[in-house]
Design a protein around this nucleic acid. Structure first.
Lengths: 345, 345
DNA sequence: TTGTAAGCGTTATCAG
DNA sequence: CTGATAACGCTTACAA
């Protein structure tokens, strides 16, 4: 706490009133005389009184802050999500405590324990890539902590959920690629545990099936570390390029993977789209400035964040316990550019 | 607070001990008998006891959380800074409350008031572009709230400060451009209030002077909104391109401005570097993948963040009031690429 | 080694 | 309309 901080007691003493009177006056209670109220409010303003949130929080059992757990802040998609969450939380007087799991299950668990001690009023979670055990979240949920999953969700846990339409986004991306003549489409996905990996792959498979495109399990690669392990990425891309039955396009199924794959392909002097087509999930706002301009599936990240925050706050502020939970699926947007242009193989 | 939460009193009652004994045992005090201690700790673990931070915070006057105020999270440079801050704060058990001023002085003031009520233990600030009045910060600083400025600083306020070597970065960038034959270098800067704008321009001017390069106030443009106002950017770039005495290179003096300027130039079908050279401050990690590959002045954002956090935490945890403040200036790194290659005008 | 009691700043309850 | 008191969960003299 700050040194000079003035309390209700101080005001009460100075004005020769009781603490309760001061407290009521400061909250503009109607049961306080007009002039007394004014005297108190003026004194408080003049002396720069600020309520002590720790005390309030202890008293009321609510801290007016919410926690966010996600894999990494320094990421287009996630930072846009934060922006969305913040925009709502802030306008309703909530503070946002941000933490990063760095995709480590262990770190995620530590963070959650820590956050839950902080008497936060609610939690927004996007799971770490490594996580397979959801029990920490289940416990918190059972204890009654309002919680919303976003993007990388635990389907089995009963909470509000906000996701992009991963299935449709991936499905349409494949149809676009196929429409431009690509026939052997490889997928590079994030960790196979993640809901987003599964949903996106399913979308692709549906399109493959419908279009009668060749499929191979060798053309579906996972990056357990989500692209942050350079060696892993290197191996995946090299393997794909050197296959006997080589794919003619790559569809990358996460933000980080898309730019990393582009980098790998360029490093290897692979011509895009002539040698191989490329398209990916990406929320990089300047994908059109890349060489080649990158075709993307764009997720409404800001809206996802703000929606998640709205759901969470309404749950927090609801009088009766929420029992009916919603899963919101927001439309993705496909932008096709040179990297997936009609190939001339 | 969570519903099922168990308290020290609960443990005391269950084990027929006093609250103080339990409290001491949980903090592993030596004045508690080994078996009592074990009994308590086991019970606490089994029942998933978590200390109530609000109570702790009220009792101790410290909340183990720090606030960050910066212009915008969804930004390469700032999100990397957050990553750096988080890495340190987290390892020392501090939580990080992130807020965005969106470059509005008014919003910044609101945020600060709000944060200061939250009994945060310290504050890391990067000023909003609009801010000219530092009195809010001065007051907080005088009240004894530990505070560190990062990147966009208020020189007059006595706190620790962490910045990149903006002067040298800009200076070297100009020398590079000049070395490649550019003679009429225009600058696009963020809001003129900002320390970073001033320092970077001064660095350029020093190089201009040394090299005897032509200078013109018309070649120095400011974007009051830091590039987030599209019309403003449009005007600035158009004006530069249509000047009678047209610059042959543009040096952009902030992260956002660099990519926005690249976009504008491409929209106008300006060939880079042939029509005009381009270089800029940018922490975009894939600047080499752009078309053209962008020459950048890169700031050690992660290190800046972690250093700021270290300074802040050491001040927070120092026994005696800190009176001697440090200004740390971290080296930038210049990476030259095609966008500023030797021109053939 | 353990217990008792006071207090951190606030508000809700009850009295006056 | 205003005041006294207790309580939120925790720590820390001081006592035993």
């Amino acid at each position: 706490m700050k040194l000079g901080a003035i309390t209700i007691k101080d005001i009460a003493k100075a004005l020769e009133l009781s603490a309760s009177t001061v407290s009521r006056a400061l909250r503009d209670s109607h049961e306080i005389g007009a002039e007394t109220k004014k005297r108190i409010q003026d004194y408080a303003a003049a002396n720069n009184y600020r309520p002590n949130l720790a005390a309030l929080s202890l008293r009321k059992g609510r801290s007016k802050s919410i926690g966010i757990v996600l894999s990494n802040v320094a990421n287009n998609f996630f930072s846009q999500i934060i922006d969305g969450i913040e925009s709502i939380a802030n306008s309703k007087g909530y503070n946002v405590i941000i933490t990063q799991s760095k995709d480590s299950a262990e770190r995620e668990k530590m963070i959650i324990n820590d956050l839950s001690a902080r008497s936060i009023d609610g939690l927004i979670v996007s799971l770490a890539a490594e996580t397979t055990d959801y029990s920490v979240f289940e416990e918190l949920n059972n204890e009654g902590l309002p919680m919303v999953f976003i993007d990388r969700i635990a389907e089995s846990i009963e909470t509000h959920k906000v996701v992009a339409d991963n299935f449709a986004g991936a499905y349409e991306a494949v149809r676009h690629l196929a429409g431009n003549g690509y026939k052997k489409i490889a997928l590079i996905a994030n960790n196979r545990n993640l809901s987003i990996s599964k949903e996106r792959i399913e979308g692709c498979v549906k399109a493959f099936d419908e279009l009668g495109l060749e499929q191979s399990s060798d053309w579906v690669r996972f990056c357990a570390a989500g692209g942050s392990d350079r060696g892993e990425m290197e191996n995946v891309v090299s393997a794909l390029l050197s296959m006997e039955n080589r794919p003619d396009a790559i569809l990358t199924l996460s933000d980080t993977l898309s730019l990393k794959t582009l980098r790998m392909l360029k490093n290897k002097n692979t011509a895009i789209p002539d040698d191989i087509g490329l398209m990916g999930f990406s929320n990089f706002n300047n994908a059109d400035l890349l060489e080649p301009a990158l075709s993307v599936i764009y997720q409404p990240s800001f809206e996802m964040g703000s929606l998640a925050a709205k759901l969470l706050l309404s749950e927090i502020e609801s009088k009766r316990p929420v029992t009916k939970f919603e899963k919101h699926i927001l439309k993705t947007r496909i932008v096709t550019r040179k990297s997936s242009a009609a190939s001339h193989l």
